[in-house]
Each structure stands twice: as structure tokens, then as C-alpha cells.
């Protein structure tokens, strides 16, 4: 008896190169450790942390979240277009990612500048040490991600990527989504978490 299957089984896979998932995994664990340590330090002086939290601009932080979510969406659309070999649409979605990435950098820079202008630095108190360290390391990730997206955008305009050549864009996209999801936790942790 011959069994003919008409179902196309899509094998389970991780997008991009395996190494980027080692990065994503390690980064996630490292940030989880940092969140834990932040909460540990907060336990020692909740009043100080609460008072310092009030100096942060919640609206700006919320807008930053929307910016990064939109950026992730744009990059995700680029990958969807790549999967369907819609090569001409890929560059504009990647550019959307670049633009929103840059918007985040500008927003953060303004926020930092504002803090420095008010004499608030990492050395001011433990909360600010954490605020600058966590958002600073995250910002380094945003800068790296935006640079990589820019590189992708330039290459995509020359048709370097397609359905069968999408490992590099998928890897960068996965990293970019990590950057987005880290901020999704960072933002409430620093800006929204009110004390009991």
C-alpha cells in the first residue's frame, strides 16, 4: 500500500544562525540577574528608590516603548516580506526599523541630557546607578541593533537577501526583538513600579 501525504509538514526551526540564539539566551539570563539584583538593592531603601523614580519621565518612557514596539513590527514585516520573496518591499520595512531605532536613541539622549543638566548622575544614589547602568547597557544594545539594521537596509537595497538567503536578516531581527522585549520589562521596573 502506498501512503501519499498531501500535508506539507513545516519543520520546527529557530530563525537565523544558531549563535544569535546563544546570545539571546545569555543576554536574557544576564538581564534577569540584573533585574533580581536591582530588586534586592531596592529592598534596602524603598523610599529612596520611590523618590528617585518620581524624577523619571513616565510619558517619555511610555513613548519609548511604543517606538521600540513599532520598530520590532517593522522589522518583523521585513522578514515576512523576505519569506515571500517580495524583495522590493524589504528595504522600506528595514528602514522603518532603522528610523525608529534612531528615534529611541535620540529620545534617550534627551532624557540623559535632562538628567545631567539637573545634576543627576550614576553617582547620585543607588537608584540612579541602576537607572543609568540598565538603560545604558540597553542603549548600547539599541545602538548595535540599529547599526546592524542599517547594514541590512543598505544590503537589501542591492538585493542581497531573499527567501533562500535570509539567515543574516533573521538573525539581526531576532536580536532586535530581544532589545524590544528587554525594554518591555525595564520600563515598568524603573519608571512605573510604585512603592507599597
Amino acid at each position: 500500500m502506498v501512503v501519499v501525504t498531501t500535508e506539507r509538514v513545516k519543520p520546527r526551526r529557530l530563525p537565523g544562525v544558531e549563535g544569535v540564539w546563544v546570545f539571546i539566551g545569555a543576554d536574557s539570563v544576564i538581564f534577569a540577574i540584573l533585574f533580581l539584583t536591582f530588586m534586592q538593592d531596592r529592598l534596602k531603601d524603598p523610599a529612596l528608590f520611590e523618590a528617585s523614580r518620581h524624577t523619571l519621565n513616565m510619558n517619555l518612557g511610555g513613548i519609548d516603548t511604543l517606538i521600540l514596539l513599532t520598530s520590532s513590527w517593522s522589522v518583523a514585516l521585513a522578514i515576512q516580506a523576505l519569506k515571500r520573496d517580495l524583495i522590493d518591499r524589504v528595504p522600506r520595512y528595514l528602514f522603518g526599523g532603522v528610523l525608529t531605532g534612531l528615534m529611541f536613541v535620540v529620545s534617550k539622549s534627551i532624557e540623559y541630557f535632562h538628567k545631567f543638566a539637573h545634576g543627576l548622575t550614576p553617582g547620585t544614589n543607588p537608584f540612579y546607578m541602576w537607572y543609568f547602568t540598565l538603560t545604558g547597557i540597553h542603549l548600547a544594545h539599541v545602538l548595535l541593533g540599529t547599526s546592524l539594521l542599517t547594514f541590512l537596509w543598505i544590503r537589501s537595497r542591492r538585493g542581497a537577501y531573499s527567501r533562500s538567503h535570509r539567515e543574516v536578516p533573521e538573525s539581526v531581527a531576532s536580536f532586535w526583538h530581544l532589545v524590544d522585549l528587554l525594554w518591555i520589562v525595564l520600563f515598568p521596573l524603573l519608571y512605573l513600579m510604585k512603592a507599597a
Binding site: D41, P122, M129, W130, T133
Partner: peptide, 8 residues
């Protein structure tokens, strides 16, 4: 060299 407390 620049910090004495905290994660760094």
C-alpha cells in the same frame, strides 16, 4: 575606577 557601589 569610578564606582564604589552597585552593579559596576
Amino acid at each position: 575606577p569610578f564606582v564604589y557601589t552597585g552593579p559596576l
